[in-house]
């Protein structure tokens, strides 16, 4: 097929825009990689450099100073991420599907009920009291898993993705005698793969990046997820540097510079492995026509 002129123009524009944006995203990351491999003093003196003046693996050595602990933390994080993403996706997609059904009478009210939670919140303390005093999840994996399972954002996005599925599909399946859950599982889920992949990605990222719940709920070291462990490594590096033991003022400063960057690199791991996997589902053709045919 001969490419039209307009298509060529479009491609040129596309390549330029995308390439420029990609460069803008890549350059800082390159600087961080270079920084993480630099000597601490070089970074403090001269700031970011494209190529390290003196190569140093000190920052990575600090991150991996206790390999068994890091290994264990990876295990915890991977487990949480997998379980959280799977369960979260299940409940999110069910809720999103119900809200997307135009014949469901209370869908607007329920959508409002869910969205309202993003507007008002009682703050950290009552939420903490609920989880610790009533659910008794202090120092339990449940506190890391359950409170992040669902978010109003994800449910409403899911609903939006599913809205583009024609009602006729549901109608005809109903006539064939399929139950609601069967319709959801057999028809809706396969048709929503890009949406599911997106929400799954977001859930996965949220679980992977979550250090805050561990920070307030987990007190046993062997239960630390990766992000929280790294966060602690950064914090204690800062304390070591201030010689806090001899200094009883409350002046705590930011962590050692190169360590910050090494940690940034270590946590970026999942996107390099996870994202291409998710991208498999961003393919056209998994659409209505394919199923009908």
């Amino acid at each position: 097929m001969r490419a039209e002129r307009s298509t060529i123009v479009f491609y040129i524009m596309g390549y330029i825009v995308i390439s420029v944006l990609t460069l803008l995203c890549l350059l800082p990351f390159w600087l961080i990689i270079s920084g993480s491999l630099s000597a601490e003093d070089d970074i403090i003196r001269d700031g970011f450099q494209l190529v390290p003046q003196h190569f140093s693996f000190d920052a990575y050595k600090a991150v991996f100073s206790n390999p068994m602990q890091i290994f264990k933390a990876y295990e915890v994080t991977i487990g949480l991420t997998l379980a959280g993403t799977a369960l979260g996706l299940f409940f999110t997609s069910m809720a999103g599907y119900v809200l997307s059904r135009k014949d469901f009478k209370y869908r607007d009210k329920l959508a409002f009920f869910i969205y309202f939670t993003t507007l008002f919140s009682g703050g950290l303390i009552p939420w903490y009291i609920m989880i610790v005093n009533y659910l008794n999840w202090k120092d339990s994996y449940m506190a890391l898993l359950v409170p992040s399972l669902l978010s109003a954002w994800n449910i409403i996005l899911m609903k939006n993705f599913m809205k583009s599925i024609p009602d006729s599909i549901v109608e005809s399946a109903k006539i064939d005698g399929a139950g609601e859950f069967t319709i959801y599982r057999r028809l809706i889920l396969p048709l929503s793969t890009p949406g599911l992949a997106t929400i799954g990605l977001f859930l996965g990222l949220a679980y992977w990046n979550d250090w805050f719940s561990a920070n307030i709920f987990i007190t046993t070291e062997s239960k630390y997820p990766l992000q929280f462990l790294l966060y602690k490594i950064l914090a204690s590096a800062a304390v070591l540097k201030t010689n806090i033991a001899g200094n009883l003022g409350a002046d705590f400063k930011a962590p050692a510079e190169t360590l910050k960057m090494a940690v940034a690199i270590v946590v970026t791991g999942p996107i390099i492995f996870l994202y291409p996997f998710v991208q498999r589902y961003f393919v056209k053709g998994l659409t209505i026509g394919a199923v009908k045919g």
């Binding site: 939670t117 008002f120 009682g122 703050g123 009552p126 609920m130 989880i131 659910l135 139950g179 609601e180």
Partner: peptide
Amino acid sequence: NKVLFLMILPALLFFIVFSYIPMVGIYY
């Protein structure tokens, strides 16, 4: 629509437990 209600119930309970009940904190 009992099945549809059942399907959205976990989400509703979730928000009641983790959002609505803690909203008492607004009283602070």
